[in-house]
């Protein structure tokens, strides 16, 4: 197990290194000079040159890459060209919206999907199964921004239970923060829950045909007990894979929902930074997202091994 974890950790570090090189290179090859863009079309060449020197843009690519990476390792993401504040501060403000939102949505998706998937699998082909499958079909099909607007109409405008958007900040209390994130989290979670339910159900049904399930029944376990005790853990591997992918989507893909609910999240930050050609912000936020996603995948890998002893033996 330790050997396996070390293996995964090593691969995590390598992935991060490769990702940083790729991100830096891609941003470098995008045409357009940041300094020229910031100063506008009428700027004099020597002003542009001065700004380039100030921003460190006149150095070679490799030197700038090193500065960028070593800075990040120390928590220094550089200065935003447009906001003129440290990128680290910009990110810190927003990640406390985006990360809790993604985790909240993932939590909701899991809490909905597990009972629904187990229920559907245990009632395979019967009315309960068909209803759950029908509901997930709808859940997958509905665009989440449309569903978000629908919820705003009902819960914010009609019932006035929550506000239609914005985020008060965590200093207003945990309850207020959670309340503000609830509608966005539900809109993000619903399609994910539908997908997860379907994956869990089909994975469980695959397990029902396995020989060890017959052994479990021959021991005297009821259908439901054998599903819980023997099928579930074996069925978790594909489910975990999907959860990993979903987290990636939720952390990076919440941008539309952030727009609908006026949430100051990472999605909006990166969107604004791209429009303003604030490349250092783009670079750093993308790197941060990659970091989060790779770390989550690392955790998923470790979870695989915790579930399946056969994986621990390999490595």
């Amino acid at each position: 197990m330790i050997r396996y974890s070390l293996h995964r950790a090593l691969s995590l570090i390598l992935s991060l290194l490769v990702a940083s090189v790729v991100i830096f290179t891609v941003i470098e090859v995008i045409p357009g000079d940041t300094a020229a863009f910031m100063l506008g079309v009428n700027a004099r060449p020597d002003t542009i040159a001065a700004l380039r020197a100030e921003l460190g843009l006149d150095q070679g690519g490799f030197a700038r890459y090193l500065t960028w990476v070593t800075g990040m390792l120390q928590g220094d993401f550089g200065q935003s060209y447009t906001y003129r504040t440290p990128v680290a501060e910009l990110i810190a403000d927003r990640i406390w919206v985006s990360l809790p939102l993604a985790l909240y949505a993932l939590f909701l998706a899991v809490v909905i999907a597990f009972p629904a998937g187990l229920y559907a699998a245990s009632r395979r082909g019967r009315l309960g199964d068909i209803s759950v499958m029908g509901a997930t079909q709808i859940g997958v099909a509905i665009p989440n921004f449309w569903f978000a607007m629908l919820m705003v109409l009902v819960f914010a405008i009609h019932l006035r239970w929550v506000s239609a958007g914005g985020f008060p900040g965590w200093d207003q209390g945990l309850g207020a923060g959670i309340k503000a994130l609830t509608l966005p989290a539900i809109s993000l979670a619903l399609p994910q829950a539908a997908i997860l339910t379907r994956v869990l159900r089909s994975s469980l049904l695959d397990m029902l045909g396995e020989d060890f399930m017959r052994t479990a029944r021959a021991k005297g376990l009821s259908r439901r007990q054998s599903l819980w005790r023997h099928a579930l853990r074996n069925a978790l591997i594909p489910v975990l894979t999907i959860i990993g992918l979903q987290f990636a989507f939720l952390i990076a893909g919440g941008i539309v929902i952030e727009q609908v609910f006026f949430l100051p999240g990472l999605g909006r930050l990166i969107f604004q930074a791209i429009s303003a050609r604030d490349l250092i912000v783009v670079e750093s936020v993308v790197m941060l997202l990659v970091f989060l996603i790779i770390v989550v995948n690392f955790i998923i890998d470790i979870a695989y091994a915790a579930i399946d002893p056969r994986l621990r033996a390999r490595a």
Partner: peptide, 8 residues
């Protein structure tokens, strides 16, 4: 080979 639960 398959009659036992592999994760228990």
């Amino acid at each position: 080979m398959t009659a036992l639960n592999p994760v228990q």
